[in-house]
Design a protein around this nucleic acid. Structure first.
Lengths: 214, 214
DNA sequence: GTCTATAAGCGGATAGAC
DNA sequence: GTCTATCCGCTTATAGAC
């Protein structure tokens, strides 16, 4: 038996502090942008000194890594909770609703989205661990497209890989245009989120009629 | 007559130094990313001290501003030279060629594109002067879409504003996916640049048949 | 053991004096 | 152009409080 087992109390308290660091870091990023995060500002808001943060995170990149992972987990949970990637649900409804939810989440979490979708922080690359939930969503999304094809909504001989890349480009494009050119606009009335339905129908129309292996 | 008029020689030399600063800064950005630019690294490569750069640029943001403007001018010139936005050329060919050229330029100038299309540098916003060539391209692009409609390639009652926003989202999406998810891949063999033709035809098909005012 | 602090090193941006 | 000096941010070392 372990002689130095830490009491649950202490472990829980530590975990709470870690969560608080992440919460505060998200606040700072929301105000200053993803690359505008500083340990000094996080420490200031927590009432501690910057070096104390090293008891919880192994430096700034480790903090970014945790924020990256947390973001993808939150997004994945949002989509799962809505049943958008449920294997028994109607794939067409799932794609439309899931895509809309994803874009909404991105627009409502602009700084975190920048960290997750682009590479705004010089020198930071997510660890494999942090990347895992993103891979999970990737796998589920590809499976959803396959079900969409099997249900007859896409051409039977559609090039799924190519169609998937086009889909990510369209969705990512709406998000990046909205966040870069009209930041602060809410999802409901965004100049670019407004064309998301058009863009989705473009993609659906095209792949219903076209295997896209030109 | 002016007593202190600087000889042309000196003015030219100064201009050359300014250009050299910009060239070196682009090199550093290409290696470190847009936000990875540091005055120290630029000065080091030029064989001078960081404070000396203040004789040519009023600080780091002014340097970013010049790089932003230079990038949009270069892109605009590339498109003009190819006749893509020539008012007498066939608008359909112009759109296809111009879009392809734009995406190619972006993929071949990734760090500068990030500065131009997104907001990777905390606290930096382009000046009106630096923004001017971007506005010019914006105006020309909208005019190209109008000619496309008048030539019968788009539905006569198409919502041009909406169609234009969708087009920028599609093109920006291809660029951002390519640069974020497969950086370093050349334009010719890029995983996402490869779907650009699909994406363009999607947009054309949709707007030929659909006014997109749903 | 655990948390946090202070001190100090380093690099970067920038203002001022020469 | 330079050097100096200041300020800020990340990071490590070390030491004191609980």
């Amino acid at each position: 038996m372990s002689v130095v087992a830490p009491p649950d109390r202490r472990r829980r308290r530590r975990q709470e502090t870690i969560e608080q660091v992440l919460d505060v870091a998200l606040e700072v990023m929301a105000e200053q942008g993803a690359a505008g995060l500083t340990l000094g500002e996080v420490a200031r808001r927590m009432g501690i000194r910057p070096p104390s943060l090293y008891g919880y995170f192994d430096g700034k990149h480790a903090l970014y890594d945790a924020l990256f992972e947390r973001g993808w987990r939150a997004l994945l949970e949002t989509l799962r909770a809505a049943g958008a990637i449920d294997q028994t649900a109607d794939p067409l409804t799932g794609l439309r609703n899931g895509t809309t939810l994803l874009v909404r989440w991105a627009v409502e979490h602009p700084a975190q989205s920048a960290l997750m979708f682009w590479r705004p922080v010089p020198g930071f690359a997510p660890s494999e661990r942090a990347y895992a939930p993103a891979v999970e969503l990737d796998v589920e999304s590809r499976a959803l497209l396959a079900r969409l094809r099997d249900a007859g909504h896409l051409a039977p001989d559609v090039d799924l890989e190519r169609a998937y890349r086009a889909w990510t480009a369209l969705v990512g494009g709406v998000i990046s245009q909205q966040l870069s050119n009209a930041p602060g606009e809410p999802f409901e009335t965004g100049a670019f989120t407004a064309v998301l339905p058009d863009v989705m129908e473009m993609w659906l129309d095209h792949h219903r009629r076209n295997p896209s292996a030109r």
